[in-house]
Measured scan of single mutants.
Amino acid sequence: TYVQALFDFDPQEDGELGFRRGDFIHVMDNSDPNWWKGACHGQTGMFPRNYVTPVN
């Protein structure tokens, strides 16, 4: 499953995934309602669910 970033996200903690608005992120785990795990630009980490939108 892929999502697209609605906003820039700069990691604040180790293990978070940084990205820029418009980036596509491969979702690896969406079991938590607020923080998902994904991959983008060769990196993996957690990111806030409300920063992304589903891609059809």
Rank of each mutant, 00 (worst) to 15 (best):
N50C: 07
G38W: 00
V52C: 12
M28A: 08
Y2F: 15
D32Y: 03
D29Q: 10
R20C: 11
V55H: 11
F9G: 03
G18S: 14
F7N: 07
M28D: 08
P48I: 03
G45N: 00
Q12H: 08
Y2E: 08
D23Y: 03
F47Y: 01
I25L: 05
Y2I: 15
N56A: 13
F47R: 02
Q43Y: 07
P11L: 02
S31K: 07
D32K: 07
I25P: 00
M28R: 08
Y51W: 08
P11T: 15
T1C: 15
N50E: 13
E16P: 02
W35A: 04
D10S: 10
K37P: 00
F47T: 00
M46P: 01
K37V: 09
G15T: 08
V3S: 05
R20W: 06
R21I: 09
D23Q: 06
N30M: 13
G45W: 00
G45S: 01
Y51R: 12
F24Q: 15
A39P: 00
T53V: 09
D29N: 07
G42L: 04
P54T: 15
N30V: 10
N50Q: 15
V52Y: 02
F24H: 10
R20Y: 10
H41R: 11
P54H: 10
D14K: 08
V55N: 03
R21A: 13
N56C: 11
E13Y: 11
D8P: 04
F24N: 06
D32W: 03
L6E: 11
L6I: 13
Y2G: 05
V27P: 01
R20D: 04
T44K: 07
C40S: 08
G18L: 10
L17K: 00
E13I: 06
D8Y: 01
R49P: 12
G42S: 07
G18Y: 10
G22T: 03
P54I: 09
D10P: 05
T1F: 12
Q12F: 10
G15P: 03
N30G: 10
M28E: 10
S31G: 09
N34K: 14
P33E: 15
V27A: 02
D32E: 07
P11F: 02
D8V: 00
H26I: 11
M46A: 09
F19D: 00
Y51V: 10
F9H: 15
R21H: 14
T1A: 06
T53W: 05
W35D: 03
W36V: 09
V3P: 03
S31L: 06
Y51E: 01
G15M: 06
D29W: 03
G22I: 00
P48R: 10
F9C: 05
T44V: 14
E13M: 13
P11H: 06
G38F: 00
N56T: 04
A5V: 00
V55K: 12
W36H: 03
L17V: 06
G15V: 09
P11Q: 04
T44I: 11
Q43E: 15
K37L: 11
T1Y: 15
E16R: 12
F24I: 13
G22H: 04
P54V: 09
P54L: 15
E16A: 09
H41L: 07
D14I: 14
Q12A: 12
G18W: 13
R21D: 04
R49H: 04
A39W: 09
G42V: 02
E16D: 11
P33H: 06
N50P: 07
W36F: 06
R49K: 09
R49V: 10
T44M: 09
H26F: 11
G18C: 10
D10A: 11
L17G: 02
P33V: 13
W35I: 05
N30D: 14
A39H: 14
T53M: 13
D14L: 08
Q12G: 06
G42P: 01
N30A: 13
D23E: 09
K37N: 05
G45L: 03
R20G: 07
G45I: 03
H41D: 12
R49S: 13
G38I: 01
F7M: 12
N50K: 14
D32T: 06
G42D: 09
V52A: 06
H26P: 01
Q43G: 08
T53H: 14
P33I: 08
F19P: 01
V52W: 00
R49A: 14
D32F: 04
V3L: 04
A39C: 11
P33C: 12
C40P: 01
D8W: 01
G18R: 13
V52I: 06
L17P: 00
A39M: 13
Y51G: 03
Q12E: 10
D23P: 00
I25D: 02
G22K: 04
D23V: 01
G38Y: 00
V52R: 01
V55S: 08
W35T: 12
D29Y: 04
K37Q: 14
Q43R: 14
F24E: 14
R21S: 11
